[in-house]
Design a binder for these strands. Structure first.
Lengths: 218, 218
DNA sequence: AAAATTCCGTTGCAGGCGCAACGAAATTTG
DNA sequence: CAAATTTCGTTGCGCCTGCAACGGAATTTT
């Protein structure tokens, strides 16, 4: 129950909204919390997304079923994460992705129209909500642009170096990365073993040094 | 002068705003039109983007200067396009990109804070503006996601087929694409000649047929 | 219409990289 | 602590693909 409000406090969408107002605001928005059991769908491909979802408990998967029947995992969602916001804002008629529970959990669903069109009793925080939504979408845009530039590099070497340099630009020449090898390979969209090979080369050539997931640019 | 309002009519940001109201609205927003001569910067890397820009005349370039001094072209902007909206919405302190004029032209600059915080005299269309902005950012998000999935494919064959299939899903089994070969190679982030080779193979194996930029899935 | 320029397909080459398989190290489980 | 499982580095193989160069086709320029 109050693990909910705890989670809610860390949700980007509500940044800047005092906890005291939050419950009333959610009421005003017509928020519903729904218990979802494992493998149950919160959003099915083909449907129209009418709600913005926020994960409160459990783990959820965003998947896309390809033309050839392959199911690819696009993202995993943890408490505090939300989903379907882009689909709602862009008013996409048929969602290309599905969202389902990887384990029993709960989500909060916010009717998008209520987010968009402020209710009659002017909740003072409504504009804040829209502002946050704009910031969230825009931030994701910028992240995506970075990743696309990364993926446009044509060699593993350039992809890795570009990634490491971008992290270094924020954290300094020595830093740890939030990825395991396999996850890093996924992120760079390259083969894991080929990534290991290239990292070894970069180390041998004296460009970088690393141990586990701690890296150092030389 | 009225080529301006003509262009403005096709700007996504103002969709649903009647032309009659547009001029007053722009006034209310504090819009300024600025003449820019070739090679002049509208936004310099490192600066904070305070305005959303709309191209009225000319051609503008979005570029990023890499660590190693390389300048890469991220996008070209034509009349009706706009820029810096993500940077504004995400409140990025230092723009990673620059925008400059490829030829003499004019841009309209909208102070972002005026877009965000409605002016005292309630312009009825203000919420429409925010709604449009949300839709624009969200649509870009979805486009980017698609492109990222594309770029995550590990062979030219899979990238091309995925691209062609996504176009076919919208236009049918026979369709034309809006790219020249070189542009398509750029979009897929592969070598042009390698792309031609793979296309030839796909045709030889009977998977596709094409002539110029008209394609057909078999 | 000729010349020039751009666009595009083709090809040889060499290195890059995906793939599979294996083994060591690390972590988890019992 | 031993066994089991996962993670990660290594390596051989062979295809893929970037690169460069060339020539033809198409388009533009004069």
């Amino acid at each position: 129950m109050d693990s909910y409000t705890e989670v809610m406090g860390s949700v980007e969408l509500f940044r800047g909204v005092e906890a005291a107002h939050l419950r009333a605001m959610l009421q005003c928005l017509g928020a519903k919390t729904v218990a979802v059991s494992k493998d149950q769908y919160v959003l099915a491909a083909g449907d129209k997304a009418e709600h913005v979802g926020i994960v409160l408990e459990g783990r959820f998967l965003v998947v896309r079923d390809d033309i050839d029947g392959e199911r690819s995992l696009l993202a995993t969602l943890s408490p505090g994460d939300f989903f379907a916001e882009a689909l709602c804002c862009a008013a996409v008629a048929e969602s290309p992705v599905s969202v389902l529970a990887d384990a029993d959990g709960t989500v909060m669903l916010l009717p998008f129209q209520r987010i968009l069109h402020t209710c009659t009793s002017a909740c003072g925080h409504h504009s804040r909500l829209l502002e946050n939504m704009l910031a969230i979408l825009a931030s994701k845009n910028l992240l995506f642009q970075d990743r696309m530039e990364l993926l446009s590099q044509k060699s593993i070497r350039r992809r890795v170096m570009r990634y490491l340099e971008s992290v270094a630009a924020q954290k300094g020449r020595e830093f740890s990365i939030p990825f395991s090898r396999e996850e890093l390979a996924d992120f760079l969209a390259v083969d894991r073993s080929a990534l290991s090979r290239e990292l070894a080369r970069l180390k041998a050539e004296g460009h970088i040094d690393y141990w586990k997931n701690v890296f150092k640019l030389l």
